[in-house]
């Protein structure tokens, strides 16, 4: 037996009831994240990345709802908890970092007050101990003059510095899991690199598991141990980061990698995936990627592939199906 995963998601399904029927925005998503591991969730906009994260922290906005599956935090089921029971888990056991640092920071309070309050809500510390801890954390995330800056308001920090403060806030109650949704997307490249390194180092030192949601393969390559590629609400491929980036098994992942201009590349024409991700109201039958896939064949248009093992990964594509799995004709 291996150790209990920090986060285990099984067959997660998120639905939106609409007048024209029920839309499945997240469909049969499963993955584990080990303590200290960074799992990247990557995909183009609308793939269902953020909803997966939102479902895990129990913040789906109605009418969106978890319609199936199980979510476990270090073995404890959390998907069936009430809003009240879930509240102390967020902040204490699951830290959160969003694209816009101002989502996590209250503009009316000094950053120190917010960190101290979070620490004291979740850990048995006096005001003074919590303040000392907050200063330590701010130093750790690279805020110069933390003793002074702790009494500043969020608007007195630059975007990059604010995201550092949010990291301090996410880590202050020593969570088991951090969910970071596009944490560097709004930042300039030079600042982005700083924040990625910081997130990686802090979580490695503490053994915190990280679910890193991003549309940027570069960020994944720099940060993640494993990566799940999402397409139209499902995982298309999941595996070790090097394998997925350098020798992807799923045609969508390969297309995605070829589409990214590189600073080493040849400058030739970029690989181009025709079309765009389907809307939830028009997800193609069979493999959702089939209208855009250069390898699509008859089976792809009628039968949906599940994730199948290939090398050290899983890929949802009939091309990787073991021959014996083909139904006899």
């Amino acid at each position: 037996m291996t150790e209990t995963p920090a986060l285990s998601v099984r067959n997660l399904r998120v639905e939106f009831p609409t007048r024209r029927g029920t839309l499945a925005a997240v469909d049969d998503v499963s993955f584990d994240i080990a303590p200290g591991e960074v799992l990247g969730i990557v995909g183009e906009s609308g793939a269902g990345k953020s909803l997966t994260g939102t479902a895990i922290i129990g913040l789906l906005e109605p009418p969106g709802r978890v319609a199936g599956g199980e979510i476990r935090l270090n073995g404890q089921r959390i998907d069936n908890l009430s809003r009240e029971a879930m509240r102390p888990i967020r902040g204490k056991r699951i830290g959160m970092v969003f694209q816009d640092p101002l989502t996590s920071l209250n503009p009316l309070y000094r950053v120190g007050e917010q960190i101290i309050e979070t620490i004291r809500t979740h850990l048995p510390m006096t005001e003074r101990e919590a303040r000392a801890r907050a200063i330590e954390l701010l130093i750790e995330v690279g805020i110069q003059g933390a003793e002074r800056r702790i009494d500043s308001y969020p608007h007195e920090f630059s975007g990059g510095m604010r995201q550092r403060v949010v990291l301090a806030l996410a880590l202050c109650a020593e969570p088991e899991l951090i969910i970071a949704d596009e944490p560097t997307t709004a930042l300039d490249v030079s600042i982005q690199a700083q924040i990625i390194q910081l997130l990686k180092r802090l979580c490695r030192e503490r053994g915190t598991a990280v679910m890193l949601i991003t549309h940027d393969m570069g960020v994944i390559a720099e940060t993640a141990n494993r990566v799940a590629v999402m397409y139209a609400g499902r995982i298309a491929e999941i595996g070790p980061v090097r394998e997925v980036i350098q020798s992807a098994h799923h045609p969508y992942t390969r297309g995605l990698m070829g589409a990214i201009p590189s600073i080493e590349g040849t400058g030739d024409r970029l690989t181009q995936i025709p079309g765009s991700m389907p809307r939830l109201t028009a997800i193609p039958k069979g493999c959702a990627f089939n209208p855009r896939c250069p390898h699509a064949f008859d089976r792809c248009r009628v039968e949906r592939p599940d994730l199948m093992p290939v090398d050290h990964s899983l890929a949802a594509c009939w091309l990787v199906a073991p021959v014996s799995a083909e139904p006899p004709r």
Partner: peptide, 23 residues
């Protein structure tokens, strides 16, 4: 520094220096 900050997609592990400070 700007070049060094570009994520290393080829995963060559090329040595890189972090850009310090802010604009």
């Amino acid at each position: 520094m700007l070049l060094d900050a570009v994520p290393d997609l080829a995963m060559t592990g090329r040595p890189r220096k972090m850009v310090e400070g802010e604009i």
